[in-house]
Amino acid sequence: MHVESSVVALAGAFILLLLAGEHAMEEALTRVEWTTIFFFVGLFTLVGALVDTGVVRSLAVQAIELTGGDLAASSMLILWMSALFSAFMDNIPFVATMIPLIQEMGNMGIDNLEPLWWSLALGACLGGNGTLIGASANLITAGLAAKEGYPITFLKFLKYGFPLMIMSIVLSAVYIYFRYLI
């Protein structure tokens, strides 16, 4: 049918709301996480603007210049950069920005993007383990621990989490190197 999956999902949700009646529709709309929805709307609008204005292409050019277009160097750059950024900020905005950047690197001559995708996925996911604010799960766990009388401070988490994150990224680098680059 050549219809985007988002259109199908929104159409289905709209039809269900119409069939449920006015009272159910009002209740459903009050239970929607509007803050989260508008966060993602803003995030993807911002990423789209960065793509359309050429900022992402410029970053891709700089990354290729820095690595000389070498697949191994590009993979390691993305792995370590995504890990360090994800340790100190939420990884969702970073990953949303990196997806078009990696696609642009593919348009500029890097043929095999698979190691770059794995570098991004491993770096962003495991990088969140480095600090207390690196992942939502860390904050939830710290909140639950504090509620039970076991507070976890940022520095205490950093003391254990950051070395483990570095170790996991080193292991990821070894995996990516032997799996894709030899």
Results as ranks from 00 to 15, higher is better:
residue 148 E to P: 13
residue 156 K to S: 12
residue 23 H to D: 15
residue 129 N to H: 07
residue 53 T to W: 15
residue 95 V to T: 07
residue 29 L to W: 01
residue 109 G to W: 09
residue 156 K to N: 09
residue 86 S to P: 06
residue 69 G to P: 05
residue 126 L to A: 03
residue 119 S to Q: 03
residue 143 G to D: 01
residue 157 F to W: 07
residue 181 L to C: 10
residue 64 I to N: 01
residue 140 I to V: 14
residue 164 L to D: 08
residue 17 L to R: 06
residue 152 I to W: 08
residue 102 I to K: 02
residue 83 A to L: 03
residue 72 A to P: 00
residue 68 G to L: 12
residue 122 L to Y: 12
residue 103 Q to I: 13
residue 106 G to M: 00
residue 107 N to Y: 07
residue 61 V to W: 10
residue 59 L to W: 12
residue 29 L to Q: 00
residue 142 A to M: 11
residue 96 A to Q: 12
residue 159 K to A: 09
residue 114 E to N: 12
residue 159 K to Q: 11
residue 96 A to G: 08
residue 170 V to D: 02
residue 4 E to Q: 11
residue 26 E to H: 15
residue 102 I to W: 03
residue 114 E to P: 12
residue 108 M to P: 02
residue 1 M to Q: 12
residue 152 I to D: 00
residue 88 F to Q: 09
residue 173 A to I: 06
residue 145 A to G: 04
residue 31 R to I: 03
residue 18 L to W: 11
residue 172 S to H: 05
residue 13 A to N: 04
residue 14 F to C: 02
residue 161 G to R: 01
residue 13 A to D: 04
residue 42 G to E: 09
residue 91 N to I: 06
residue 120 L to R: 04
residue 83 A to H: 00
residue 44 F to E: 07
residue 15 I to Y: 05
residue 156 K to F: 09
residue 14 F to W: 14
residue 138 N to Y: 06
residue 154 F to A: 09
residue 117 W to Y: 05
residue 61 V to C: 08
residue 32 V to P: 04
residue 172 S to W: 01
residue 75 S to E: 05
residue 75 S to I: 02
residue 81 M to A: 05
residue 98 M to S: 08
residue 42 G to N: 11
residue 79 L to D: 01
residue 85 F to L: 10
residue 35 T to D: 14
residue 29 L to Y: 02
residue 176 I to D: 04
residue 182 I to H: 12
residue 157 F to A: 00
residue 35 T to E: 13
residue 161 G to I: 04
residue 7 V to F: 15
residue 80 W to R: 09
residue 162 F to L: 08
residue 48 G to L: 11
residue 100 P to F: 00
residue 182 I to W: 12
residue 97 T to D: 04
residue 64 I to S: 02
residue 154 F to M: 13
residue 47 V to A: 03
residue 56 V to M: 13
residue 105 M to Q: 13
residue 71 L to N: 05
residue 30 T to W: 15
residue 146 A to C: 06
residue 59 L to S: 06
residue 110 I to M: 04
residue 48 G to R: 12
residue 52 D to E: 15
residue 136 S to N: 12
residue 149 G to T: 14
residue 8 V to L: 15
residue 129 N to K: 07
residue 47 V to E: 05
residue 5 S to W: 14
residue 152 I to L: 12
residue 127 G to Q: 01
residue 20 A to E: 13
residue 82 S to A: 05
residue 1 M to K: 09
residue 92 I to M: 15
residue 15 I to A: 08
residue 16 L to T: 07
residue 128 G to E: 03
residue 41 V to M: 09
residue 39 F to A: 10
residue 25 M to G: 03
residue 151 P to A: 08
residue 40 F to L: 11
residue 133 I to Y: 11
residue 133 I to K: 08
residue 40 F to S: 03
residue 22 E to Y: 11
residue 138 N to S: 03
residue 122 L to Q: 06
residue 119 S to K: 01
residue 124 A to M: 04
residue 47 V to S: 08
residue 131 T to N: 11
residue 3 V to M: 13
residue 70 D to P: 06
residue 141 T to G: 15
residue 96 A to S: 14
residue 84 L to C: 08
residue 105 M to A: 12
residue 104 E to V: 03
residue 136 S to A: 14
residue 62 Q to P: 04
residue 69 G to M: 02
residue 11 A to W: 01
residue 114 E to I: 14
residue 73 A to W: 08
residue 143 G to M: 04
residue 23 H to S: 15
residue 116 L to M: 07
residue 134 G to V: 08
residue 169 I to A: 07
residue 74 S to Q: 00
residue 66 L to H: 14
residue 79 L to N: 00
residue 180 Y to Q: 06
residue 38 F to Q: 10
residue 143 G to W: 02
residue 28 A to S: 04
